[in-house]
Amino acid sequence: MALLEVSALSKAFGGVMAVQDVAFSVDAGVVYSVIGPNGAGKTTLFNLITGVYTPSGGDIRLDGEAIAGVAPHRLAQKGVARTFQNLQVCMNLTALENVMLGAHLALDRNLLKGLFRAPGLTRADAALRDRAAELMRYVGLDAYRASAASAMPYGALKRLEIARALAVQPRILFLDEPAAGLNPKETTEIDALVRKIADSGITVVLVEHDMKMVMNISDRILVLDYGKKLAEGSAREVRRNPAVIAAYLGKAA
């Protein structure tokens, strides 16, 4: 059984069908990419699967369990993590705290224990601090361990979101344009990072406009156009699909 199964998924915004009757499935352990022109519905698809939006119709199953319309904080419990195309970093926190936030569910969040600085809680938090620092190193942010999030450059913030998502200890990780706005060198580094994450056993679902990266890294690719599924298959298959070439690659290349 696939880890993620989506069928007949739709989302309407007023009259606009942002996602229309989309079906696909993602096997555990793969890198699965979603591509398509601007406004094709990729982010909306992510928002539907991660609980940010409620579908207008259709079905989403994680490991066989129906999760359409389940709130994001509950999906985090089930091992779903994500990053955002438009950065969502807590600028009032330090970089390290942003990563620690990712492990929110692994900690004792009791208000009273926090108030009285319960020893067990303080110890667990100190241990998490080390793990978060380790994750920052993993994504290449060692230099920013003592930084405030608000003092970091854009490229570093993109990685910070990835570190935070990894702190969730996800089974499936949704990355919405992790290389957007980055220079070629940074893009190559993100490419390597995504590969490293996938190799660690986390299933990665990726939205990305950088075709070189997508073609290199993906086990399978879903092509969306105007909210509809245009094609699906391996990088080879998708690259040769005439409809895809016409609608998307033709324009880009």
Binding site: H73, L75, V80, C90, E97, L101, H104
Partner: peptide, 17 residues
């Protein structure tokens, strides 16, 4: 931390649980 985080970005706080 969760409290400060939801001030910084409600959606970011939500998706981590």
């Amino acid at each position: 931390r969760a409290l400060r985080a939801l001030h910084g970005s409600e959606i970011a706080a939500q998706v981590v649980g």
